[in-house]
Design a protein around this nucleic acid. Structure first.
Lengths: 171, 171
DNA sequence: TCATACAGTTCTAAAATTGAACTGTCAAAT
DNA sequence: ATTTGACAGTTCAATTTTAGAACTGTATGA
C-alpha cells in the first residue's frame, strides 16, 4: 500500500493516517500548536533534515492543514499557519500527549502541564460521548457500517466460502 | 533522530510517537480495536508485508501495548491482545477517526458509525477538560513546563545570546 | 567586503519497506 | 500414505525513504 492509496480507503482512520500518520508530520504539528511558524523554527526545534521538512510542509499545505502566507517581501518569506482543518487536529494531539503523560513519563513527572484558561486549572483531556457526555471506553462502543462503507464485495476469490474452520486442541 | 531517541525526549508527544507514530502501527492498532487478534487476521485485513507485521507486533509487545498469549499448543500459536496500556490508546484512535469523519469523507458519508452502548446513540467523541467539563480548543489552553521538563540548557553554542533580530520591511 | 539570517534545493550514503519465496508444525482430505 | 491447506513466522533482493551534509540565492548589518 502506498501513501496515496491510504487516502482512498473507506476508513476515516486510514485517510487521516494518510495525512498525518508519520513521525515527522506529527512532530511538525506539535510545533505548530506551540506557535512555531517558520522554516528555521521547525528545523531547529526538531532537528529534522531540511529536505524532509520542506517535503512535509508542502504536503500539509496541499492537504489544507497549513496555510503558507507571506510575512515579508524581498526576499519573499512565508510562514506556516494552521488552518481550521489543522486546528481541528487538536484533540488528536492532546490525546497523544495524554497517553504519553500516563504511560511514558519518567520519575520526574510530566514534561508539560496544560492549563485551561476558562477554569484556570491544570487539566487532563477526557474524551466523552457527544450525546450523553459520559467518558468513552472501547468496550462501550459498538461499531457499524455507515453510508460510506465499502460495499460488501469480497476481494478474495469467490471460491473461498467460509469452510468450517478446523479447531485444533486448545491450549 | 532515530526511533529510540524519540522515546528519551522530554516530551510526552515525542515519546508516544516513538511507540505508535508510524503508519502501520496505527493501522494494526485499528484492527486490534476492531477485535483482530491473529497474525493472519492482521495481514489479510491490512495487506501489510509479513515481515513488517512481525516487526511491528514484536515492538508493540515489547512496549507493553499488546500481550502475546498462546491460544493453542502444537503447533504453538499466539494471539495479540490489547493490554490496559493499549486500551488506553482508544481516545487517540477515536480522535483520529473523528477528524477523518469531519475532514476526509467523500459524498457518501462516513464509513463507520459509532454507537454508545450506554445511551444507545450514534455519537461523536468530544474532548473536554477534566476539571470543568468544557470542550477544549487549542486557544484556551496555556502550556507550561512541568517537573519533567528539560532543564533550561541551551544546546546551541553559548555565544548565541539572543541578539536583537533584524526586522526587514514587512510584507 | 564579509558574516549572518532565512528558506529552501541538491546530492550521496544509510536505513526502512516491499514483494515474493521459503520454513516448519500440524489437521484434514484424497 | 501422501498431498493440501492453515497458520505464524523468516529470509533475501530490489525499491523507496530518510539522513546528513553541502550548496543556492536574496537581503541585512558590521
Amino acid at each position: 500500500m502506498k501513501w496515496d492509496e491510504l487516502e482512498e480507503e473507506p476508513c476515516s482512520m486510514a485517510r487521516t493516517i494518510g495525512v498525518i500518520g508519520d513521525r515527522w508530520t506529527l512532530l511538525i504539528l506539535r510545533e505548530c500548536f506551540l506557535r512555531t511558524r517558520r522554516f528555521e523554527g521547525f528545523q531547529s526545534a526538531l532537528g529534522i533534515t531540511r529536505h524532509l521538512l520542506a517535503e512535509r510542509l508542502k504536503k500539509l499545505v496541499r492537504q489544507g492543514v497549513l496555510r503558507r502566507i507571506p510575512y515579508q517581501e524581498s526576499p519573499k518569506r512565508h510562514e506556516y499557519i494552521l488552518t481550521q482543518k489543522g486546528l481541528d487536529l487538536y484533540p488528536i494531539m492532546m490525546a497523544i500527549v495524554h497517553w504519553g503523560d500516563t504511560h511514558m513519563v519518567d520519575v520526574r513527572g510530566r514534561p508539560l502541564l496544560h492549563e485551561h484558561r476558562k477554569c484556570g486549572k491544570v487539566f487532563d483531556p477526557v474524551m466523552v460521548c457527544s450525546e450523553c457526555g459520559e467518558p468513552l471506553s472501547a468496550k462501550e462502543v459498538h461499531v457499524h457500517p455507515g453510508p460510506g462503507a465499502r460495499p460488501a464485495l469480497e476481494k478474495a476469490s469467490p471460491d473461498k466460502k467460509a469452510k468450517p474452520k478446523s479447531r485444533r486442541k486448545a491450549a
